[in-house]
Simulated scan of single mutants.
Amino acid sequence: MSFYIPTIKKMYFVSDILIERIMPVEGQINVQPHSLVDPSTNLATCKISYEVINLGQKFIPSKKNITSFNQGDLVGKVHKNKFIAPFKGSLYQLENNYYFKSEEKDNWLLAGVWGEVLETSHNRSVLLKTQGMNIHVPICTPKIKSGELIVFPNPEKNLVLKYLENYVKTSIGKIIYVGNKITIDIVKKAAELKIDVILGGSADLEVYTFAKANDIGLGLFSIIGNANTPNNIFNFINEITNRYVFFYGDRGVLQIPMPAVKPEIKVKKVSNATKSSNLINQPFLKFVKKGLEVQIFEYDHFGKIGVVDRVGKSGILVRLYDGDEIVSVLPPNLVACE
């Protein structure tokens, strides 16, 4: 017996993507319209303070008319508590509040993508045209972030926390794939380390609720529950680990910048019999055969992913990635994954 099932495109190439790269303050733009860029291109430079300490309204400066201090200098005090400069910086007052900020340093705005400069604006932003691979993230919190993608190699659950702890000093600005299942301990550690976004195959509702309440970016490639990351997604992100990527939680998309190379398009030969059927030629339908990756939406195995083992008269037999169990499923309770 033959079956055709709907297809979900989990990964697809997109051209003519517009991305605006913005500096925190005005500075110097280093590129011109029509310039070609790659991820390491320095688009613009500005000077910013990376640390600011709020000293409050009751702060009393140690010296009048002196605003610059070296590390270790006495800056002033609040009541009887002295404030010693933790780094070289300056003191300033804004709306009756005193602040101490670190010495301004150069901040580079890197392109992060392959593409072309379309325009620049107000010595602060650069509009780029680029291309990339979009990965569908069906379950995610509405966070929008960009950063370096770090991929853990689907480790044992008890090793994930140790991996995270290794990134304590460099966790800010990271988007981290932690494995097939994100637990409550993992998402709490991510909050503690101020990780921008964590990705995984699945998670319990408790994890999603905690992430959303604590403004943590969370993206699941499968479902709320217990399911692995689709193999094609893991294999792809594992190959491009350490690349600068864009997470659009509001749209359910992880966008991976790609070089300007037109993706190979394979033309599949079809028989005259196949051509005669308009239904079979629909691009959203897939002929079920051995080895096809599918996702199940039947109650007992909802959201789980596996590959077709064989097609029988009683249904489609699917070998699940989770536990290597073979289950029988009938359309419309499953879809093909691309």
Rank of each mutant, 00 (worst) to 15 (best):
V178Y: 03
V178M: 02
G179L: 06
N180I: 01
N180H: 15
K181D: 09
K181E: 14
I182F: 06
T183L: 06
T183V: 06
T183Y: 03
D185G: 07
I186G: 01
I186V: 15
K188S: 09
K188W: 08
A190T: 00
A191D: 11
A191S: 13
A191P: 01
E192Y: 14
L193I: 05
L193D: 04
K194R: 14
K194G: 07
I195G: 05
I195S: 00
V197T: 01
I198A: 06
I198S: 06
I198V: 15
G200K: 05
G200S: 04
G201N: 02
S202G: 07
S202Q: 04
S202A: 14
A203Q: 08
A203K: 05
A203F: 11
D204M: 07
L205K: 13
V207R: 03
V207I: 08
V207W: 06
Y208E: 04
Y208Q: 04
T209M: 10
A211F: 06
K212H: 10
N214K: 12
N214P: 01
D215S: 13
D215H: 12
L218V: 02
L220M: 11
L220R: 01
S222C: 10
S222N: 13
S222A: 15
I223R: 11
I223A: 07
I224R: 05
G225M: 06
G225V: 03
N226V: 13
N228E: 12
P230E: 02
P230K: 03
P230N: 07
N232S: 14
I233S: 00
I233R: 02
F234P: 00
N235S: 13
N235M: 09
I237Q: 04
N238W: 10
E239Q: 15
T241H: 10
Y244S: 00
V245M: 05
F246Q: 01
F246A: 02
F246E: 03
G249H: 03
G252N: 04
Q255A: 15
I256H: 01
I256W: 06
I256F: 05
P257V: 03
V261P: 00
E264A: 12
E264V: 12
I265V: 15
K266P: 01
K266M: 13
K268N: 14
K268I: 14
K268V: 14
K269E: 14
V270Q: 07
V270A: 08
S271G: 12
S271K: 10
S271N: 08
S271P: 07
T274D: 14
K275M: 15
S276K: 15
S276G: 15
S277H: 10
N278H: 09
N278F: 10
L279N: 06
L279P: 00
I280T: 07
N281T: 12
Q282W: 04
P283S: 11
P283K: 11
P283M: 06
